[in-house]
Design a protein around this nucleic acid. Structure first.
Lengths: 366, 366
DNA sequence: CTGAAAGCGCTTACAG
DNA sequence: CTGAAAGCGCTTACAG
């Protein structure tokens, strides 16, 4: 026999109970620390568990407890064609996911990660399948329409990231408004740049919309001139940013003194495109980002940007979802603080001697 | 009432059946495409499902089907202190995980990702918890002892990555032997280097052991001199590689003509350390890696290394596990082919003119 | 402290 | 084609 087909059936709580000579209720109690089983009982159960290598079935526990201890995370895989350093970088989404995972771990939850192809259809079907396997869902930016989210939220708590809160879902985002305001003040007031442009991200991203809106308002308030938005539509990708610059230059357009990008990846693409045309950053054109992804500080020149607490964004999303799963109400619009990171792409000097960094700016850094 | 506490209970298959005026069996059949329900029945069920936003409970399905359609993946989070570019890079593990995820998706499986802290204890408890929530497990390098794996495998199919096959678990790895052999041949035969050293990875890593073994055998076979292994113990990390070089240099030791690193990250650290001491790569010392992580080609000089089909490693691990879950036997030792990637850190010239790249080498490239 | 039994929400033979 | 019922493997009142 030996290697024979022996369809080794995984032991169940009944096998453990039988071997230990107790009821399944006792086994369950010992394993879950409920009640106060006699020491004798405890021992026998534990021994049987060990001898059988018993692992309780999660599905059965979940069904009985009405709790799976699993949250689902849905995000888009490989947006756009990778761009130079981009492909290999731990990007925004990855850092957020790590934050979710670490926070979940602390609560004894596990994370069901599900990426969706950029052009994949039937997303809502896929998301529904995940929903069935989890106690709650965290949806990254623009995964589902508002209606889709509303429908989904009927069956499971939903937290969106960088989206919009709704009557049935919670949203976690960073404080785009303060961040953009501080950034523009730095560019216009501290550096004295008079002409600016905002290179946008995905048009339907709430983050992008907020950043664009505040950019305009603040730039005008500071008395700077804004380059018409028409030609400045990116898509949050490096290649998108590079494309915009390339076509602007091809048309012989004059660039503004400073380009404010909707996110770091866009800034990365812009800097590449500028370098290729021999335009000096920051001396001829200043460039800024938003997010402060890890690679930002290693660009040449190091990127001035607005730091979002990215990993914390993920951790917070999980915590909010977790308390929602446990029935608490809580705010539906969670906003995390940001911080202006002044490096060199804005025109400030190398770290050691922060020449053009006046007091006001330094305060932002604190 | 309106906003009242309304503890909205998620609808079950009974609610759907009730609303549609059919039995739960019919609902189940329609939803799973079993049998041939009347069109009329179909419609009514589907309508009820839609109206209630019904999502079948995964735990209940799993319990009934004896299949969760979930695989667990366990790996170590943040090994060592991040090193320069390292922190931000999509490393070996991340690429493998992506491969697993994509393959799982194709089969309708989801992936439970669980990272374990580098110094975390109680790993086997954590792993057991995951095991209970999944149909099978993929364990990255060195997560559990052979005994631990054996115990785990009693309750769930296990596939290890870069480990060793056992009577109860399957292992997926790449062909370290051929890769290292081709690499050494290139360094000794093609470039004529006479003195080599192997900067090792984790001593208990099977990959590392295989690479070290073949390094020695092949170097000797080619007639090269090997620097004593004593001082050359790294740990797969960039900082580990840098540390070895620094202390060797501090002791005034003479470096070999070529340093063969156990993996790319180690090579990255070595190149940094060498650069810091003003030692030219590859002119004074050649350096090679193993893995071909995305960042390898962007180093200065671009890293000559052995490419493992990293994402495919993950996809294969899933496929093997999947067929095991479905009861097939299959090989327990799955080996994927590798390919020598000749770039510049070995001393070869810039791409366009592959000067010292003889026919034999080019063949390896094919 | 402990056991018998009900119940969690599905799927699937088995009858009709 | 369709429904009643058993069963998947747990947890937890409820009695004893």
């Amino acid at each position: 026999m030996g290697e024979a087909k022996r369809t080794r059936v995984t032991p169940t709580i009944y096998d453990v109970a039988g071997r230990a000579g107790v009821s399944i209720a006792s086994v369950s109690r010992v394993l879950n620390g409920q009640g106060s089983p006699r020491a004798e009982t405890r021992m026998r159960v534990l021994r049987a568990v060990r001898e059988l290598s018993f692992v309780p079935d999660g599905a059965a526990r979940a069904l009985s407890n009405q709790l799976k201890e699993v949250v689902g995370v849905v995000f888009r895989r490989g947006s756009e064609v990778p761009f130079e350093d981009e492909e290999e970088s731990l990007l925004f989404i990855d850092v957020i996911n790590r934050g979710i995972e670490v926070a979940a771990q602390r609560r004894g939850f596990d994370v069901l990660m599900s990426s969706v192809g950029i052009r994949e259809d039937g997303v809502s079907t896929r998301v529904a399948a995940i929903a069935g396997k989890a106690d709650g869902l965290i949806l990254h930016d623009r995964m589902l329409s508002a209606a889709g989210i509303a429908r989904l939220a009927e069956s499971v708590p939903v937290v969106t990231l960088a989206g919009r809160p709704s009557r049935v879902s919670i949203n976690v985002r960073c404080d785009n408004e303060s961040g953009m305001r501080a950034l523009i003040r730095h560019l216009v007031t501290d550096h004295g740049y008079r002409s600016l442009a905002f290179l946008s991200g995905h048009p339907d991203s709430p983050d992008n919309q907020a950043r664009a809106r505040v950019f305009e308002a603040q730039a005008i308030a500071c008395g700077a001139e804004i380059h018409a938005a028409a030609a400045w539509h990116g898509d949050y990708s490096a290649s998108g940013g590079a494309r915009v610059i390339a076509s602007l230059l091809d048309e012989g357009r004059i660039l503004p003194r400073a380009i404010v990008c909707a996110n770091d990846q866009t800034a990365l693409g812009v800097m590449h495109a500028l370098a290729r045309r021999g335009i000096a950053v920051p001396n001829e054109v200043a460039v800024t980002g938003f997010d402060d992804v890890p690679v930002a500080r290693h660009l040449h020149p190091p990127l001035t940007t607005v730091r979002q607490p990215i990993q914390e964004l993920g951790a917070t999303a999980f915590e909010v979802l977790h308390s929602r799963i446990n029935g608490s109400a809580g705010r539906r619009d969670v906003v995390l603080p940001v911080r202006l990171m002044i490096r060199e792409s804005c025109g400030c000097a190398h770290q050691p001697s922060p020449l053009p960094a006046p007091a006001a700016t330094v305060a932002d850094e604190a």
